[in-house]
């Protein structure tokens, strides 16, 4: 049943640790975290707030270096393609660039000339349904539209691996559902390798081929769940008993962690899980 059987390894992270230190002391964000991701796999990392999942993603993106451990990413046949492109929770769409310039940004940095760049960007803008806003600046867009720009920017860059850091975390529930379906639809077309960080178990089960559970203080891998729900999926899958069972199983594994995290931080944060 495992669709990724036989596919080559894309990411091999072995015993990754990350320690942040300042003058007063140090915080261990990630401890001995190992992970393998296959080519074309949609991997979701779920964990309570502050469990180091965003830090791990930044290590994958090359924005941070691990304190110890080894990270291997298998480059593609076309070495001019970027290894990773990231979609950020805060959108990180440049306010000073139009939708077209934002989506074409990665291509421009790679030196792809204007005509080709605009053609690629336009086709992605069309696919996320923003053609009417192609020359708009981000301040004219809603949160959901901004994140569509963020997703289009990452996909237009055609990376080996798509990294998504709680991309729907800042959106309202309805917009989130619309974008979940959009992500599913776009991913089914290409089956690009994705590492998707979220604190919503439902989102992880809906989108992923596999869910990795992370624990906090320090962040490390607690459990792994293969998601064998049939593809192509859409939101209808959330109404099936299998979906409910998987979600609850993962929640049971996570619950203890969340409770202990709340106790260790005092009264407990307002951020829920899922």
């Amino acid at each position: 049943m495992d669709r990724t059987n036989g596919a080559s390894l894309k990411i091999r992270a072995s015993h990754i640790s990350k320690v942040f230190s300042n003058g007063k002391g140090s915080v261990e964000a990630i401890r001995d975290f190992s992970l393998e991701v296959k080519e074309g796999e949609f991997l979701c990392i779920v964990g309570p707030s502050g469990c180091g999942k965003s830090s791990f993603l930044r290590i994958l993106a090359g924005l941070m270096t691990p304190s110890s451990g080894k990270l291997e990413i298998q480059p593609g046949e076309d070495t001019s393609k970027p290894l990773t492109s990231m979609v950020f929770q805060e959108y990180a769409v440049f306010p000073w660039k139009t939708v077209l310039e934002n989506v074409g940004f990665g291509l421009r940095m790679r030196g792809i000339h204007k005509a080709e760049r605009h053609a690629i960007a336009q086709s992605w803008i069309e696919r996320v349904g923003l053609t009417k806003f192609i020359h708009a600046y981000p301040h004219q867009l809603s949160g959901g539209m901004k994140q569509r720009v963020g997703i289009a920017r990452a996909l237009a860059n055609d990376p080996e691996i798509l990294l998504m850091d709680e991309p729907l975390g800042a959106l309202d529930a309805q917009t989130r559902m619309v974008l979940q379906e959009e992500i599913l639809r776009i991913w089914e077309e290409r089956r690009k390798t994705v590492v998707y960080v979220t604190h919503s178990i439902e989102e992880a089960v809906l989108l992923g081929d596999r869910v990795v559970l992370m624990t906090a203080h320090p962040g490390t891998k607690k459990a792994e769940f293969p998601i064998l729900l049939p593809r192509p999926r859409d939101l209808k899958v959330t109404a099936t008993p299998e979906f409910g069972e998987l979600t609850y199983t993962i929640w049971e594994a996570l619950r203890g962690e969340v409770l202990s995290a709340m106790e260790s931080t005092g009264a407990g944060s307002s951020k829920g899980v899922g």
Binding site: P82, S85, F88, A92, K97, G106, M109
Partner: peptide
Amino acid sequence: IEPVYLEAGRNYGASGFRLFYHVILPG
């Protein structure tokens, strides 16, 4: 400047003068 813009700039391949021109200066 929001650090996330610098992260986005770097992740999408901007560094040195291009990071300055496309992200730091307008930011």
